[in-house]
Computed example of a mutant assay.
Amino acid sequence: MTTHVKIQTAPIPFIDVAAQRARLGARIDRAVSSVLESCRFVNGPEVAILEEQLAAFAGAKHAIACASGTDALAMILMSWGIKAGDAVFCPAFTFCATAEVVAWVGATPVFVDVKADTFNMDAESLDRAVAVAKASGLTPKAVMPVDLFGQAADYDALLPVAEKHGLKVLCDTAQGFGAAWRGKRTGSIGDASATSFFPAKPLGCYGDGGAVFTEDDALVPILKSVREHGQGVDKYENVRIGMTGRLDTIQAAILLEKLDIFEDEIRARETIAARYNALLGDVATVPVVAEGATSVWAQYTIRLAPGRRDALADALKNEGVPTAVYYRLPMHKQPAYSAFPADALPVSEALCAEVISLPMHAYLDEATQDRIIAAVRRALAG
């Protein structure tokens, strides 16, 4: 007698922000109501409190809240005076914002390959990219490692290369805030760091938001000036070119409530990722966390043999399991960035053809995990 297994097809959220809302809803409602009652919608006291708590969480001396992760990156480059003729080194396997801000300030992004296991910047490729930049007549100035998919980059390998070439280190931890390298949390590594509080991030607000972290006392007033239209003694004296980069008070109030449970959510993500790895490791190449690193699992990304990804995505979609591809094109192949210098970047190109991400968030219960795992295993069994 044949037994038929009923396959569920009700849609699963890729990132379930509603589940977190159910947990924190009343607290966030009170926090937002407090801002509404105060009517201090810009630069309210919650912003300064958030900055203090973010710095303490990261183990950084200073945190400067801002309007987005992209603005955070740009504020740092602007404050450092990065300009036309300067080279800033970015991984080829990342979201466009990393390189976008380099072009904003008139400098040139030079692309670097990543490691095949962690997907983070490869120090040997960075060393070669410096030679590429110099051959192009550029002045190497800074490197922007990305803590991709939630995992801290290999700073033991990258920082000596940066020092060798006199590069400032701007850590793009938009996906990795809360992770650590050798016990140091992201935000406390390098010359400065930038993160994002986009709603889908492990620590996300209810709109756009971001923050800059640094140990450099002298950089802080410049960053704050850039954030406020380049103001001097007040907003009507402009001593440098700036932007409108403030974080809204309402978003700060929301983030304060979310930061309070962030440690618990990181632990939940780690548990879910470990379970995924244990139950999918024989059918796909599962994520590797490097020795000395931790991850906040912004995404859970597996790697498949060439040509298998689209069939898996279609099969999972039919079972109500969403997927995403981060990223289909490496930066040096993107139309807007293809003219910028790059050495051979074979790992980034291969990853873009082979990776796919599964649902990941702190509220993914075991029954839902089991459903996702079973669907993946069925699809890859053929």
Rank of each mutant, 00 (worst) to 15 (best):
M1Y: 03
P11C: 00
A18Y: 12
A19M: 10
R21Y: 15
A22F: 09
I28Y: 12
R30G: 01
S33A: 15
V35A: 14
E37H: 12
S38T: 08
C39Q: 15
P45Y: 11
L54E: 07
A58G: 05
K61I: 00
M75F: 12
I76T: 06
M78W: 11
W80C: 11
V88Q: 05
C90S: 07
P91A: 09
A92F: 09
A92G: 13
F95L: 13
A103M: 09
G106M: 10
A107N: 06
P109K: 02
V112L: 03
D113I: 07
K115R: 14
T118Y: 12
N120D: 12
M121Y: 12
A129W: 05
A129H: 11
A131L: 15
S136L: 05
P140F: 13
P140R: 00
P140T: 05
K141W: 10
A142I: 09
G150W: 00
D154H: 12
E163W: 07
K164A: 04
H165A: 03
L167Q: 08
K168M: 12
K168Y: 14
C171Q: 10
C171E: 10
T173A: 14
Q175E: 13
G183L: 02
G187D: 13
G187H: 04
D191Y: 03
A200L: 10
K201F: 14
Y206M: 09
V212L: 03
E215H: 11
D216R: 01
L219I: 04
G232L: 04
R240Y: 00
G242V: 04
G245R: 03
K258A: 08
D260C: 11
D260M: 13
D260G: 04
E265F: 04
R267D: 14
Y276M: 00
A278G: 08
L280W: 02
D282Y: 09
A284F: 01
V286Y: 01
S295P: 07
G307Q: 07
D314H: 14
A315S: 13
N318L: 15
K333N: 15
S338H: 04
A339H: 15
P341C: 00
C352H: 01
I356T: 05
P359I: 00
M360W: 00
Y363K: 11
Y363D: 14
D365L: 05
A367G: 10
I373W: 13
L380V: 03
L380E: 02
